[in-house]
Design a protein around this nucleic acid. Structure first.
Lengths: 124, 124
DNA sequence: TAAAGTAGGTACCTTGACGTAACTACTAAC
DNA sequence: GTTAGTAGTTACGTCAAGGTACCTACTTTA
């Protein structure tokens, strides 16, 4: 999967494909994380906080996330235009799952570190 | 993140990076799914089931997964060598989380389909 | 004798994803 | 009048990830 050409993953893998394709993008989880922690913010703020991202990438990622219903885009046609992005309901929903995933990752990382530091007696 | 060059994602995003980098690979979730559903199997079987994957990719993915402790590799030096891959404890652990993620994806996909098919009265 | 299957490894080559830079329109400030 | 800031879009170049093809060493089968 994740190549869109398999044609055989007709089981529970398709929604996985959908969701991983979304999160996979280079800055995606970082953007989601920032929006979650810092709350709704403007394009410029987001760009400054997601260190190193280019405007192009940020726009592209935000468009994908918006299309999938993870973030909302609020456009005010004032003269310096003001565009505010916020996590939508789905974004918050995903935060929970991603939190679990991160917790699993943390645990493994900690286990690995422990195994590396105390390889003696190791009840392994 | 997911580019290894940010240097700013020093929060809860690092384990995310670790785990997404693992799952992100093209065929990874497909492989994990197959190993989970079909149980331990040989390289050839896996390659045949994960339709379209090349030996190179499969080997590479399996090595990463093995290194991360998600799958185990059992090598028997018989004359046609027999190599069996199986989900390790971490693999099973991840299955649960990925199941949740897939469920979320399914729900969204269903919601989207419903919204597209019945845009009238929208209570379906 | 030759082909096929086992589990990969290696070399090469393409492609598309990402980064960079320039451009938009409009206004406020200097 | 020129610069900066707003929120992008567009064009272009590059580089590495992934695909394809070929290679191993050994045995069984036709």
């Amino acid at each position: 999967m994740l190549k869109g050409k398999n044609g055989a993953g007709d089981l529970a893998s398709c929604p996985m494909d959908f969701i991983l394709r979304l999160l996979m993008g280079p800055w995606t989880t970082y953007i989601l994380y920032t929006l979650g922690e810092q709350g709704p913010q403007r394009f410029g703020e987001l760009k400054r906080r997601v260190t190193g991202v280019s405007a192009k990438m940020l726009t592209e990622r935000l468009r994908s996330l918006e299309q999938a219903g993870l973030v909302t885009r609020h456009y005010e046609a004032t003269i310096p235009p003001k565009v505010t992005y916020a996590l939508a309901a789905r974004g918050h929903e995903l935060r929970g799952v991603l939190g679990t995933l991160a917790a699993v990752g943390s645990k493994w990382l900690a286990e690995d570190a422990a195994a590396a530091n105390v390889p003696r007696q190791a009840a392994e």
